[in-house]
């Protein structure tokens, strides 16, 4: 069970959270303008990174807020937590490996 540092409540056990998938995917402002290919990309295509992954969590059994985290998928260690809407933080170079 992971420890997740909710930006609002602090460190809490994973059991209080629900996972929200890849972060920084904004719903298109005007979906009607997208062709089928572009819409399918938005709907279905997700990255599957070995390394640092930006992902969404929700403190569902806590304050209820969604937020984002950077997690190294090879170690399950978190490198950053930040609020929804904030840009992805820059990490020291040694963490920025993605394959």
């Amino acid at each position: 069970m992971l420890i997740i540092d909710c930006p609002y409540c602090g460190k809490r056990p994973e059991i209080e959270f629900s996972y929200g998938g890849q972060a920084h995917l904004a719903r298109p402002q005007q979906p009607a303008q997208l062709d089928d290919q572009a819409w399918a990309e938005f709907l279905y295509m997700r990255t599957n990174i070995k390394g640092v992954y930006a992902e969404r969590w929700r403190h569902a059994r806590g304050c209820g807020r969604f937020f984002n985290a950077l997690r190294d998928t090879t170690t399950d260690h978190f490198l950053a937590f930040y609020k929804t809407g904030e840009p992805r933080p820059t990490l020291p170079a040694q963490h920025e490996r993605t394959t």
């Binding site: 209080e16 806590g62 304050c63």
Partner: peptide
């Protein structure tokens, strides 16, 4: 105070 889990109840 906080919302949390008590086994399978919130």
């Amino acid at each position: 105070c906080t919302r949390t889990a008590l086994a399978k109840a919130d």
